[in-house]
Each structure stands twice: as C-alpha cells, then as structure tokens.
Design a protein around this nucleic acid. Structure first.
Lengths: 186, 186
DNA sequence: GTAAAAAATTAACAAATGTTAAATTCGGAC
DNA sequence: GTCCGAATTTAACATTTGTTAATTTTTTAC
C-alpha cells in the first residue's frame, strides 16, 4: 500500500508491527463538499489524504472558517480533540472528491503498548504537524494578508482548486479583502 | 524533585526509567533579560520553567517579536528546531530572574530506545504543546486584537510582570495599538 | 534621592482590512 | 445552449491597526 511506503519514509517499523498497523487502515471515499467529521464530534479517527483535498473548519459568529487544508499524504486530525479526548467545535470536509486512509485512533493507541515502533512512527508524524502549526503561527502573527496569500500560492499547486472563500478565512481575512489583494497582484 | 512529580502527573514511568531520566535533569538560573539560547542556534535542550518567566523571540524587519511565553511548569523549546535538527531563527530569553530545569535533548532521545515509557511521557508533554499552538492559531486567525488581549489577561496572572512591548508583539500588534486598546478598556 | 534611560502613552495622520450591497462571472442542471 | 444559483469582484464607506513623533511615566544606575 502506498501509505505504508509513506510511513516507511518517516520511520521504519518491524514487519510484525507493519502487519498490525496495516490491518487498522481502511480506505474511504468522499464526494465533493461531503462532511467527513461533524462539528462537535470527538476526533477518533486519524485520516491521511490519499487523493483530493480536505479541510478542517468551524463556525465563528455565523461564519464558516477554514483552519487547515490537507493534500496528498497529509494527516488530517483535530488534534485538540484527539490528544485530549474532548469534543471539538471543528469538523472535517472534503473540498473535492477525496479518498482518505482512515485509522481508528483507539485501536492505534492500543497498538502503542505492544509496538514501541508504531508509537514512535506516529510521534514523528505528529511532530511534523506540530512544526507546521508553529510555522503557520509565525505567518499569522507578523505577516500582512498579502504576504500570507503569496506564500500560500508559492507552496501549493492545489490552491486553484479551492474556493476563494475558504482561502480567505484560512488567511484570516474576508473574501472581499482577498479579492482586493488578488486584483493588486495582477 | 518537583519536576518529577509534575511529570508523574502526566504519565507514570517505572522507577528505573525515573532514575535514568532524573540523572539528565539539571537546574539553571538566569537573571532578568539574560539570553538562554541565542537566535540562530539549534535547539538541543529542553527547558521547563521552575520559577520565573521566559519567552521565545525572533527578529523580523528589525523588530523584536515574542512568539511564546512560558511560566511555571511550562516547557520551553524551539520545536521547529528540536524536531528537525535544523537551526532556528528564534532565541530564548529570561524575562525575569528565572530558574529552569534543563534536559539535554540528544541524551533524552537516547533514553527513548531503552525506556518506552520515557518516550511516551515526552510524547504526551509535547502533545500538550501542540494543542496549545493550535489554540493560539485559532485566536490569531479570527479574533480581534482586543479580544486576544482580554483573553490573555484572563488566562495568566503573571502577565503584569511582562513588558507591554513583548505582549504587543505576542498579540501580533504594535505597542501603540496595545496602548490604545488598554485605554479603551479602562 | 537624582539623573538618565527605558517603557508606555497620546496624538495626528496613513494604510490595511472590514462591512454592506450591487454587479459580474462562473459552473452545473436540465 | 440556457437558466439559475453560487462564487467572485467591485465600489463606497467605516473601523481597525500601523507609523511617526512628542510627551509622560517608570525603572535603573549612580
């Protein structure tokens, strides 16, 4: 499975562990705009995007806000719930027709006790997510909206497939502001 | 040691592991404004604040920006370097006279192989940091500066000991804006 | 205690972003 | 292809935040 090769590129686990892990992985398809996990639920599944685009979103003052985008091989979890067990006000939605690998989190966490190397693999995977959060913090803290948009364009080819309203809220600005920025750039 | 009780409240490790871990922990004192780790260095030490206040900071366009504050029992690491091995443009500074526990990261990581439970303990500790980063992302993405300031006031008693210039940059605004906000509140 | 330096506030104006509403463009259903 | 609804852009004005510089307050060094 492609996913296992991706995992191997992060940290190599024993064949035994590999087999246990592999039995937890299922594949799911979602169509464009389909909600994968509802707002208000607990995060009990770790998703990895196989193909397509997904986002984490929530509502604030009646507005739909995108907190995160995930593309090929990206993890998509609501960490504030996965790591605490608490429900989260965030949901997950497919932006396009999207195929994901899904891993039940409590089954995975049980494996940690038997397979030290699986725990390590996922520790390393989540550390990468942690670093991503910090980088994004930096950009939200002290870059202009225009700079954040330009950086987003640089880093991702998939961007043109994402509705601008989602990009705007991801950048922390209104859609009108984003339009203005786009017209300045052209 | 107080630190070991704190660790135990997160995850209980075996007496053997406890002893190994304990031998890595040293205590260091820094005086007000002293730089603990220079900008541009690699993060090779995990600090936990015993007493006092420390901050993570960096320079952007000649300005000094505070990315993070740490108080009692808070971890303070430059995760983007610790987890990648790369140098970071961020430094660590004591805001007050501060005592920290210090753990050499490569020694700690070596212990992970022998002591699964130490790896777990630190995984859990860093997961908490990860969740904190996400919460902060949320507030930077879609709260006004005033709301962010009010929330900061709510959450921390130590705030009044921190120079306002640091608080302003932490909130992502200028010191002048923060003064304005403060005068509106009174 | 006093002087100098640093920190914080205030003021005036500039720039960026938000808000509302209308106009235009685009995409999907038929 | 046409129509309808959604997405995007544009415009006009309001609000927030930034910039510069002067002033006041607080802290530090002696």
């Amino acid at each position: 499975m492609e996913l296992l090769s991706f995992f191997e590129s992060i940290y190599k686990i024993t064949p035994d562990a590999r087999e246990s892990l592999s039995s937890l992985i299922t594949e799911k398809e979602y169509s464009k705009n389909e909600v994968i996990q509802q707002i208000g639920s607990r995060c009990r599944t770790i998703y990895i995007v196989k193909k397509g685009i997904a986002r984490i979103f929530y509502h604030k003052d009646g507005l739909d806000i995108t907190e995160h985008f995930a593309f090929d091989n990206d993890l998509i979890v609501r960490a504030e719930s996965l790591f605490t067990g608490e429900p989260t006000s965030k949901g997950i939605q497919a932006i396009e027709n999207t195929t994901v690998y899904a891993i039940d989190s409590s089954s995975l966490f049980s494996l940690y006790d038997q397979h030290h190397d699986i725990e390590r693999l996922f520790r390393l995977l989540f550390e990468r997510e942690h670093v991503n959060s910090i980088k994004r913090l930096e950009s939200l803290q002290f870059q202009s909206a225009k700079d954040r948009y330009l950086e987003l364009l640089k880093n991702t080819d998939y961007i043109q497939k994402i509705p601008l309203k989602h990009i705007a809220s991801y950048l922390g600005i209104t859609q009108v502001s984003l339009s203005r920025i786009r017209s300045e750039i052209r």
